[in-house]
Design a protein around this nucleic acid. Structure first.
Lengths: 112, 112
DNA sequence: ACACAATATCGCCATTTAGCAATATTGCAA
DNA sequence: TTGCAATATTGCTAAATGGCGATATTGTGT
């Protein structure tokens, strides 16, 4: 079935939330379990203000959940689906890289 | 395994290519088979210049292939994977919409 | 009350980008 | 060649956005 303009915009917004390296890095860290903002700041080496902002964007998109825990705020993955998304994309990138290698005369690559 | 900064940027670029309603509309039309630029212009009701531009973006991202056919240029899907991506996203949006409905007291929804 | 730590928000700047009109390119036919 | 149709590109403007420093908010102690 064909999606109407509004649905396409909603899909685009969701993809847009995944279209930034910093946000992807945050999601990657959260894959291991909930983390507080400060821990995320240390791990990805970005400024606190920006980490907070990007977490806010992920939260608005419904991809992460927030939970106050005393003085800190713990974020967690709200949509495990995003890892399937990333796997699909990584698969394409791997295929592209292998093609590139082959075109440059790399050693034969295994096909599974 | 954790992706490095460059890989995250590559993934982000790919998601970015899917983060625009017009480009999603183009891909949706191409799902039915290859189409020339003019046909796409008619179907999605956008200006020719913009359609050409967005098709170029999709091509750079490696999502569509172009083939000259006489005086026209036919585009086609180069990565069927994108439809799995969209299906995952649409699934989430449907779940969200159902939740919203339930919260507002909508009729009971079937669980599969 | 106070001080302090963790997080969020604000104002700003620089970059990116969708859309547009106009123009350039490309290929076909006469 | 000339003319015409299909597509691409260019120059532009307006809007969105990532990152920054500074500041505001919130919660926990004392």
């Amino acid at each position: 079935m064909a999606l109407d303009r509004d649905s396409l915009e909603a899909v685009a917004r969701l993809f847009g939330a995944l279209a930034e390296p910093t946000r992807l890095a945050l999601l990657q860290e959260l894959k291991g379990g909930p983390l507080a903002v400060g821990e995320l700041v240390e791990r990805i080496g970005a400024k606190q203000a920006n980490v907070s902002k990007q977490l806010g964007a992920l939260h608005v998109a419904g991809l992460v959940a927030r939970a106050r825990d005393g003085n800190l705020v713990r974020y967690s993955i709200a949509e495990p689906m995003i890892f399937e998304l990333c796997e699909l994309v990584c698969g394409k990138l791997r295929r592209d890289a292998e093609k590139q290698l082959a075109a440059l005369g790399g050693t034969a690559k295994r096909r599974r």
